[in-house]
Design a protein around this nucleic acid. Structure first.
Lengths: 182, 182
DNA sequence: TCTTTGTATGCAACTCGTTTCATAGACAAG
DNA sequence: CTTGTCTATGAAACGAGTTGCATACAAAGA
């Protein structure tokens, strides 16, 4: 049950509306925890009832009004407690791995296109991450002396980069294996 | 919705009872797709209704009776169709990454123990995978000329090994970063 | 003027997954 | 002879997550 906490982190980094949170969950924090806008609105309501966040109506020009959410001291305390609460490492769920084992009972060459598609998707994501790293952390625009928050965002991004590189290398291994068999 | 298909693959590799499937989902296929026994029983029932599997009652000595499930031609066809159906790459969900970004709003050193725990868990899993690889694929007991099924199982296992190695390296990066900040 | 796109919020229905509880046969240890 | 462990199956309730639908304001373009 980490969506509440992911939202707390995102709102602490920058208060915002449900709509803005949904967009952040399509990039940035969403690289490691996904959510749709319906889920976000529902959880925001619950968090407000629990006193973790407070809502302020904001009038905008040239746009519909929005509700800006920010974290209360109680919300900060809840996040702090969660950070100290040990959770067990997430078990990975790789649909593609199930498919690869299933290929033993079907024509293995039929999977090659699918694996190539995944390879392309991971290559695209890696490119995207590397561009973000250059822009925010390693390029000329980047802060010379990053603060704790920036350091932590960077190390999480490095995790995403390492993951995509690992997947690319593995998918190439898979392709070579499928071609050998077929 | 891949649990049905993961069960089909597992039953094609070896027919078995719900209980046996649940144990396989604690190792082997479960490294890439997890499920509890309740979920397995419920889905088996549905798959039987759909005609994907058939059930045979088996008397056992010194044990309660069991129901052995095996895949029907219709189930095989369903698997085949799924293998050809493009799915989008799974988005990863790393609770630990959310926690790391959250550490910017709390005492970062409080997270060090938690990250060390995760590091240990991944190290254990890597050891386990490597032992399995040696036993089944690279050791003296391994088949000299593996068939397609064994080749595919091995490449999936290599993926697990690569994943654990990547996580270990990244978690060390995270630890170094946390210690630098604290 | 009408359609499309973007911002903004929300309900309802459904599926997926987890947790808790319950039952029952067989064996082994104390 | 009671307790614990392993095998084996399942119901019920809940929580998490997805999909489809609905509404509304405003700008831009055809």
């Amino acid at each position: 049950m980490a969506l509440e906490h992911a939202i707390l982190v995102s709102l602490l980094e920058q208060p915002g509306s449900g709509y803005e949170l949904a967009r952040r969950f399509d990039r940035s924090i969403g690289y490691f925890w996904t959510a749709t806008h319906q889920q976000i609105y529902r959880v925001l309501r619950r968090m407000e009832n629990d006193g973790w966040i407070e809502v302020r109506a904001v009038q905008q020009q040239a746009r519909p009004d929005k509700k800006e959410h920010s974290v209360t001291p109680a919300g900060r305390a809840a996040l702090s407690a969660w950070l100290r609460d040990p959770v067990q490492p997430d078990s990975v769920r790789h649909e593609i791995a199930v498919k690869i084992r299933g290929a033993a009972f079907d024509d293995p060459s039929a999977l090659i296109t699918e694996v190539e598609r995944h390879h392309q998707a991971h290559a695209d994501r890696l490119t995207h991450y590397l561009a973000g790293e250059l822009r925010d952390f390693t390029g000329p625009e980047a802060p010379a002396a990053p603060d704790a928050g920036e350091e932590l965002q960077h190390v999480v991004l490095r995790g995403g980069i390492a993951y995509e590189r690992m997947m690319l290398a593995w998918l190439e291994d898979v392709l070579a294996t499928l071609r050998r068999i077929a």
